[in-house]
Amino acid sequence: MKRFKVFFNIEKEEQWLNEQLQRGYRCTNISKLGIYSFEKTDKRYVIRLDCRDYFPKQKFVEYKEIYEDFGWSYITGSWLGGIRYWQKKDSDQNEIFSDNQSKSNYYKRLMGYSLLLGSFCLAYSFMLFNNSLLYHDGLWRMEGSLFWKALVFETPFVLLKLLPVLMVVLFSRSYYKAYQKYSVLKSQ
């Protein structure tokens, strides 16, 4: 089974993945473009998403080995840093964090991650809008049906141009969500 999905919130993604696993699937691959591959299984699995900065090779080996010792298998993750997907057979130890300190550090890393991607989109939006307006200037001087045709023609491109702005909003939201959880854990 393959599914295409795009997430801007890591916790939502984790939740969705686990819903698929509860229906009797096991995740086999996750591509960068958002294609999630699953296969049928009669065992129960759980997935946890970790967020880590860039690892030098040796550090990554150590990180991976500790998780594997605990029964987690690595699905995928970007070498640059960011989300790392871990899957394991369902048991009484299904979490990757067992205390508040490590959980709050996790949310802090999520905040950093959303902030980085959000700033990237913001910078990109500025570049995009710096030298051009949303609609072509000549559009507003057109009249009658020509105007409407041109408007309909240009609108999809305008929406495309607005995409990075929308992404800024979505990353800001996930930053805020992570911040809320972080501050709750911090105050405990």
Binding site: E62, E95, F97, D99
Partner: peptide, 24 residues
């Protein structure tokens, strides 16, 4: 690493069981 978790489970009489990410 993993032996640390097992040792802790033993000396805490099973009350502290560390998870992978926390231990790492």
């Amino acid at each position: 690493g993993y032996a640390v978790m097992q040792k802790i489970e033993e000396i805490s009489k099973g009350s502290v069981i560390l998870a992978a990410g926390t231990l790492y």
